[in-house]
Simulated scan of single mutants.
Amino acid sequence: MVQSDATFDGTFPFVPHFTDAPGFQMHYVDEGPREAEVVLCLHGEPTWGYLFRHLISALRSTCRVVVPDHMGFGKSQTPQDRSYWLQDHIDNLERFVLSLDLNDITLVMHDFGGPVGMGLAARHPHRIRRVITTNGPTPFGQADLIERVMANAAVSPWFQWIAKAEVDGSLDAVLGQLGFNMLSTLKLNGFENNELITDTWLAAFAAPFARPADCLGAIGWAKGFATNAHRFEIPDAAANRTIRARPALAIWGEADRTLHAGHFLPLFTELFSTAPVHRLAGVGHYCLEDSPEEVIALVSEFIRRT
């Protein structure tokens, strides 16, 4: 858990907010006019709201940008008596959104923020205005979802390591030291811009995982895939119709070694058949780090145009 007032040399200068609505102390950024439409940014593994720092600064003059840290990540609490499966994160997000009564939501999702956000969309489709994926899967009841997940896992170094580590019993121990092996974990998943690697940048991503007890969120997400404990939310027919009609945008770094475009972009295009898809050559899994200016331009123009 990152200290609430940590700004990492001014690179994350946003006022911290906290709520107990999900049953633990959840941190979130809430920047921009309260009457403006909401942009809800959802991070994945093993990141936190810091991932969206450039996007927050770019959008907050015209949008209300809300960025929660999932349970066990960032400045949010890491309860020791909770499970950390996908369905738990969807439950937490639902309670968070309802407590703030967020509507007209533009989802911006990265990594496992994708299935968390799509879980929210399945439960509350009328609160969603737009859907934007930035290297984040968009599972929404597609019949071939599990086949795609398994095919991707077969060629992804991250998922290959998860499966092996769970079998040999090293997963908890290795991810329990995530604060010390953050750089190798990020590189395994894939970012291409090595100029990002500064002491401040690395400290910002490693700080949430200072002790093994702080790493339950990261361990839970990995272990859930290894043990098939995660449960994807299935939309009903009305939610399916509603979300399919929403404006949507896909931004995908093609150098992603963890979530391959060939396996996961079809989930998006099947759901949003006429939506624009931007494949970014030479950009890795963390497209918001590798190419923030390009991502900001695409997101800003999409929101303006729709």
Rank of each mutant, 00 (worst) to 15 (best):
A151M: 00
S4Y: 11
A6K: 14
P266W: 11
V38K: 08
D199N: 13
D214P: 03
L55T: 14
P276Y: 09
W48L: 00
G262N: 08
L42N: 07
A165K: 07
R53W: 10
L51N: 06
D111M: 05
S4E: 12
E289T: 13
A163G: 13
G224Q: 03
L51C: 05
N152L: 01
L271C: 02
M118P: 13
M26T: 09
R34S: 15
P22F: 13
P46R: 05
N193M: 11
D256K: 01
G74W: 13
R34P: 11
N193V: 14
T47K: 06
Q25T: 13
G117A: 04
V174M: 03
Q142M: 02
A255K: 03
H230Q: 06
L202C: 07
A245F: 03
M109I: 05
L59A: 12
H17T: 11
A143V: 12
Y50N: 12
R305V: 15
D30W: 14
W48R: 01
N228A: 08
L196Y: 05
D20T: 15
A250I: 03
Y84N: 05
F232V: 11
R123V: 09
V2Q: 11
K75W: 02
D88Y: 07
L86D: 01
D144S: 13
V108T: 03
V108R: 02
D104W: 09
R82D: 06
L249D: 00
S83V: 12
P115A: 04
H54R: 15
P13F: 09
N228F: 01
N193P: 08
I243R: 04
I105A: 02
L186Y: 00
D256I: 01
R64I: 14
A122T: 10
A173P: 04
A154Y: 00
I303E: 11
L98R: 14
M109W: 04
V108S: 03
T185Q: 07
I128A: 04
F18I: 11
P157M: 05
L188V: 02
V167E: 08
K187T: 02
G44P: 04
L265P: 05
E35N: 15
A151D: 04
T274Y: 11
W201G: 02
S156L: 04
M71D: 03
L55S: 04
E37N: 14
N193K: 15
G169Q: 00
G217K: 08
G114H: 00
R305M: 14
D20Y: 13
D9H: 10
I146S: 08
L178D: 02
D172M: 06
Y286M: 10
S61P: 06
R246S: 02
G136W: 06
I162V: 15
W158V: 08
A226Y: 05
Y84W: 06
P33Y: 13
L267K: 01
I128Y: 01
A213T: 10
